[in-house]
């Protein structure tokens, strides 16, 4: 019990962020028209590509003789980049088509 309390105290800032972000996330897309469900999903998909930052950190910290960390980290960087770049490009392609409508 003590440990849990200690952990919460130590990470209270993070826990606040989590709680607030849950509400922001729900609030922000609350009134999305169904037409935009797909692009929105795709955009959100690109945003969770932030994992790549974790991958970069893993990669950057790896000692040069730790081949497991190096190879897995390298793979993680590639996959993370795929998620970010691919995600944003696909979303942009979808939305490009919506733009024409305004003409």
């Amino acid at each position: 019990m003590n440990e849990i309390l200690q952990w919460i105290t130590l990470h209270q800032e993070m826990i606040y962020i989590v709680l607030l972000m849950i509400f922001v996330g729900i609030e922000v897309i609350g009134h999305v028209p169904s037409v935009l469900h797909t692009p929105l999903m795709s955009g959100a998909n690109a945003i969770h590509g932030v994992v790549i930052i974790g991958a970069i950190i893993v990669m950057g910290k790896a000692e040069s003789d730790n081949y497991l960390a190096l190879s897995l980290g390298f793979l993680a960087v590639i996959l993370g980049t795929l998620n970010v770049v691919g995600g944003f490009v696909v979303t942009d392609r979808m939305l490009e088509m919506f733009k024409k409508k305004k003409k």
Binding site: I17, V18, M21, I22, F23, V24, G25, I26, V28, I29, L40, M41, A44, N45, I47, H48, V50, V51
Partner: peptide
């Protein structure tokens, strides 16, 4: 970013 997508998703 993660929690935002988690909640919105």
């Amino acid at each position: 970013g993660g929690i935002l997508v988690g909640a919105a998703g």
